[in-house]
Design a protein around this nucleic acid. Structure first.
Lengths: 239, 239
DNA sequence: GCAAAAGTGTTTGGTATACACCCATGC
DNA sequence: GCATGGGTGTATACCAAACACTTTTGC
């Protein structure tokens, strides 16, 4: 979704005040019912009309790069208030046929249900796609998606990102299933429990599940301050 | 070193055919006598004349991003034929005072003695600086350097990069000292030996050191094809 | 009782760490 | 002999994988 003709003209970035040869594309991964999805936008107009792409746009001439990513994502998809992190720049000379545009990709991982999706700007439609079943993407967006996915999987194993995707109180099995869907593997229950408990990262809520058709599990929560203090002592998260 | 006024006008990228609002800056780390250095360039002209910066420049309008990085480094410093890898883009709106320029940083780690340094283009001087003693750098180049260094240290522990910095045949102590200088730590000799030998990554040359004032050590070499075949079997390098 | 998931224990094997120690060589 | 670095051995501790097992609860 990176071309001058497709860049959105919104209140936050008036047309004509954007940098022409740089774009931003956003990879937003969403987790829902144990399935990992990615948010894609359909081109409303132009030669790629009707084709699917990563939500993207152009940077305002006095807008910080990171801010631009958030603003663009909001303009195109309605999704806001999330932590986008830079992946890298993609800049093959022929990556974009209509003009020379280098794109900087950002990515995030969110709880899908927390976000309402509203197509806007250059997008006629925006929706979540199962990661195993994405449509053909324009330009090099397929390559960007693959790199982002691989980077996400690496990151989620070395930083406690996953916890943002669960309700505040969760069981160990919830957490395990979360990692199983993101990493696309099976994990051993006893070993996963032990690893988590040994990290001393989870805080016991001293509560049990309610209304379950089996033995109720203990509920835990993730405490950012506990994580920070562990990290200062040299602790490093690892799944 | 990223501004239009400072961008070099060389044969490979005639002035006027570069992208104005993107630049590239290169972090070249060099190892020499167990010291880790970084290659810096001094501004020849402009308001930052005489100040030190990362070697950088602008991208040709039909030049691949990765190619541009190599070409720019060669133009400014004379250093060529090395593997530059992208670090990330830096794009705070106020990072560069004269114009809006987003820079994409690249980095590499080389054996310093293999490269001849020749100042060119916008640089009046180019030289290696000890990593513990770099001068004040222009703009946000100090921040880029710190991020690059941290990324390098992470990478060198998870990929067998270090081997390129040694002569073809080397002893285990050479290798250990190499890692000690890059990582700025002390390592335990017996444990380092064992770890390396257990990886079965090194090929024994069946030769000994010559003319040393102590017991001669065995010489080893690194074999890229051995590494590739191990990697296919799921092996992952770790120091 | 049975199904379903919670939760515990145990065995095996690898590997990180710390450190003591012996070996070979040149001066 | 002694300094220098080469090279080996070993005890401890922890941690991962695999898997058998017991417990609690709703139906």
């Amino acid at each position: 979704m990176d071309s001058t003709e497709l860049s959105s003209a919104t209140a936050s970035t008036p047309a004509g005040e954007t940098l022409p040869d740089i774009s931003i594309d956003c990879l937003v991964f969403g987790l829902d019912n144990g399935r990992l999805n990615v948010l894609l936008a359909k081109h409303r107009a132009g030669i790629r009309q009707g084709q699917w792409a990563l939500p993207g746009g152009h940077i305002g001439s006095s807008e910080d790069l990171d801010d631009a990513a958030s603003r663009i994502l909001k303009d195109v998809t309605g999704v806001r208030d999330l932590f986008l992190e830079q992946l890298r720049a993609f800049g093959r000379a022929d990556r974009f046929p209509d003009a020379r545009v280098i794109t900087i990709a950002y990515y995030a991982l969110v709880k899908q249900k927390d976000y309402e999706v509203v197509a806007g700007g250059p997008a006629s439609d925006v929706r979540w796609w199962d990661i195993h079943d994405v449509p053909e993407l324009v330009y090099d967006h397929g390559e960007i998606l693959q790199q982002g996915l691989s980077s996400l999987r690496h990151k989620v194993r070395h930083e406690p990102l996953g916890f943002n995707l669960l309700p505040e109180k969760f069981t160990l099995l919830h957490l395990q299933e979360l990692y199983e869907s993101i990493l696309d593997t099976k994990l051993d229950k006893p070993n996963f429990r032990r690893k988590m408990m040994n990290m001393k990262l989870l805080v016991d809520c001293n509560e049990k599940q309610q209304n379950v058709a089996h033995r109720a599990a203990a509920l835990y929560r993730f405490d950012e301050s506990v994580y920070q203090s562990l990290k200062e002592k040299g602790f490093s998260f690892e799944v």
